[in-house]
Design a protein around this nucleic acid. Structure first.
Lengths: 95, 95
DNA sequence: ATATGTGTTAATTAACTATTTACAATACTT
DNA sequence: AAGTATTGTAAATAGTTAATTAACACATAT
């Protein structure tokens, strides 16, 4: 029964990983991305790319999958809210 | 020790899911995407988007995560092959 | 008041997905 | 052999997104 409700966007989760006194500017510098890029991620204005997940994992000591998977679930949630075509399930020969 | 070696791209895996006699043209029709779009996915010229994973899961009776997750791992593998910045791990206060 | 630092927006560039149209190559049918 | 279907791919177009730098408003410190 997991992931039933609107998940937090990954940037929100990332925010919780930053030390209290750490500024966006400083974090961006350590991640070697621009201030703007990090700010957008933190505010859900941009997603976490594969490359970004590698940066985050190197910095925070996690696996990249944590971040990329979170983004994937977010993307999926968003896509589910869009209108979808009516696709008839493929008939497979019974085994 | 999973995912150590170059993973097959998702399109390759998808190909194995199609019934023997099913043509790309026919599959594209059922998925309600253009022939070109499906062909590109099958040949690794395009990735599987969240929307596409929903189509595939509806058609093939899987979860969307199967396809989207596969794409994610592929993307991660590709990203790992790129040159990466040297990021110093964040010093955290010991617990 | 002047300077500095901070977070966000604006504008730009680059990359990617998806569509239609078109073409060449291959296979299948009659 | 002639015609038909299938496939992969390319070109042109439209829409989306990520990343950068430049610019802005706001705060803080000297």
């Amino acid at each position: 029964m997991s992931r039933m409700h609107n998940p937090a966007h990954p940037g929100e989760v990332l925010r919780d990983w930053l030390p209290e006194q750490m500024t966006v500017t400083q974090a961006a510098k350590e991640l070697q991305v621009s201030r703007v890029t990090l700010s957008k991620v933190l505010n859900g204005k941009a997603g976490i790319t594969a490359a970004m997940s590698l940066r985050l994992s190197a910095w925070l000591g996690t696996t990249p999958d944590v971040w990329l998977g979170m983004q994937t679930q977010w993307d999926l949630w968003q896509a589910k809210k869009q209108p979808r075509p009516n696709i008839k399930p493929l008939e497979r020969l019974p085994v």
